[in-house]
Amino acid sequence: MKIGIGSDHGGFELKEYLKEYLKKQNIEYIDYGTNSLESVDYPDFALKVAEGVVNGECNKGIVVCGTGIGVSISCNKVRGIRCALLSDTYSARMSAEHNNANVIALGGRVIGKDLAVEIVSAWLKSEFLGGRHERRINKISDIEAKYML
Rank of each mutant, 00 (worst) to 15 (best):
E16S: 14
K48N: 10
D114Y: 10
N100G: 03
V117F: 04
I140H: 02
F12I: 08
V71L: 08
A84N: 06
R109M: 11
I3P: 00
D41Q: 04
M94N: 01
H98L: 02
Y17V: 04
N59K: 13
G107F: 08
A92N: 06
V64Y: 05
V63D: 12
D44W: 00
Y147F: 15
N55R: 14
G11F: 00
N138F: 00
G70L: 11
W123N: 07
A96Y: 00
V117M: 09
A92I: 05
I81T: 11
M94V: 14
G4F: 01
A145P: 00
R135M: 03
G11I: 08
L85A: 10
E28N: 14
W123S: 10
F12G: 06
D88N: 15
N55M: 08
P43T: 11
S39N: 13
N59Y: 04
G11C: 02
E16N: 13
I143M: 11
F45G: 10
Y17K: 12
K23R: 15
K15P: 04
V71C: 07
T89V: 14
L18G: 09
A105W: 09
Y29V: 07
S121N: 15
Y21T: 13
L124G: 08
A46L: 04
I73G: 12
V40F: 02
L22A: 10
I104K: 09
I143V: 14
A105N: 12
I143T: 11
H98T: 01
S72L: 01
Y32L: 09
L37H: 13
R136V: 09
D41Y: 04
G4S: 11
G10E: 05
Y32H: 12
D31F: 01
G52P: 08
S74L: 05
E20N: 15
E20Y: 03
S126K: 09
E16P: 00
I69N: 12
N76I: 09
F12K: 04
E51F: 02
G108N: 02
R132I: 07
T67Y: 00
D88M: 05
S74M: 06
V64E: 07
